[in-house]
Design a protein around this nucleic acid. Sequence first.
DNA 1: CGGCAGCTTGAAAGAGTTCAATCCGTGTGG
DNA 2: CCACACGGATTGAACTCTTTCAAGCTGCCG
Lengths: 214, 214
Amino acid sequence: MRVQETRADQDIVREGDRPSHCCLLLDGFACRYKFTQTGRRQIFAFHTPGDIPDILTLHLKTMDHSLGTITSCTLAFIAHDHLRDLLRRHPRLTDVFWRDTLIDAAIFREWMLGIGRRSAKTRIAHLFCEMVTRLTAVDLVDGNRSPLPITQTELGDALGLSTVHVNRTLQELRGDALLEWEGGVLTVLDWAGLKQVGEFDPSYLHLDPTHFDR
Amino acid sequence: MRVQETRADQDIVREGDRPSHCCLLLDGFACRYKFTQTGRRQIFAFHTPGDIPDILTLHLKTMDHSLGTITSCTLAFIAHDHLRDLLRRHPRLTDVFWRDTLIDAAIFREWMLGIGRRSAKTRIAHLFCEMVTRLTAVDLVDGNRSPLPITQTELGDALGLSTVHVNRTLQELRGDALLEWEGGVLTVLDWAGLKQVGEFDPSYLHLDPTHFDR
DNA sequence: CGGCAGCTTGAAAGAGTTCAATCCGTGTGG
DNA sequence: CCACACGGATTGAACTCTTTCAAGCTGCCG
């Protein structure tokens, strides 16, 4: 494993690349995204420490989207060959990684549902609920305060909204005393209320261990 | 394997179910979808013969969305236990199925990009290009005529659009002499033009065998 | 102190939705 | 053989959520 520090807003892997390594995110926030031919960006996923955002390169040679840092990050690069060797020796591990990519896809579906069918307010509230839930799972949440070091533009790019509208909708959420968000820290003031506005049901994250197959 | 005929518009597996079998689609069209709490539907995927739309139940015990038929279908149900046994005996097969679910996810991402960032016209054209490409891969396309037995409402539910708007946008596409679509058959009159309007680049489908890892 | 990224605001424009009918082809029962 | 029901396609008009454009504002860093 090669460990490396990276500045914020740097691409780690780009659309079209054919990487020979996967990257384990040790510290920081990253995202996956792609541009429209007309230059509009959609963010597909936010990644947090512990994730291997490009594990898919193990089976899909050419990247069909990009992976970039949001904050400065610590990354560990692992050669595909080593990873394959590991999985061959421990088939159970294959299932774990496969399952992880399936949850990844479940999150994509939930975002799709939001972008396609939910209002801006619901979408934003939902994403906040998801991030807090996921960050809780990796023990990064302190009480009702959760790191969320992304910009309003990035939030818009993830939710299919303009920055302006994100900004105004955020004001509503704050006005409803549901949350505060400044300095990259999200403070949830009313979890029940936020969940309700966001129509949030965490089942799709498959965090409950009783959902495991074995 | 238990083979079974199913009528159109029937659920095969429902959100919340904990299936013990996977279903191989032998004939017909199916889709995966989920409802918003306010009753709005988002279709996540269209499935064609040869697909195993619920292979994910092998690793995610509880369904977080539903799978239903669009047309009448022929399905083959395979017990998880049998499938697991098969995969244990042929580890190479695990990689094939895993890869397949990764392509599934790549399609989700592309749809997300469309719903979030592309116009209605581009979205519809893009979906048509995708379906024709995928149906060509399973040899269901005859010249420029491709089966596409879905309703305008279903198309809207897949693209995050209202039926009314789908209808009007379809008229534009027809008016531009790009396609015809009636009786469940899509006829592409101008492939190059449709690709351009749809900003379609099939890379994300990972069909090119040179993209395979081994 | 200037510069820059990110946040905020106002006003106008627009893409897409909603509501409410109408139309059309097909299958069904009398 | 015709009336009727029904799912799906189509149309018109009003409405609204979200975008776009165009400035300001703010805090931080060199």
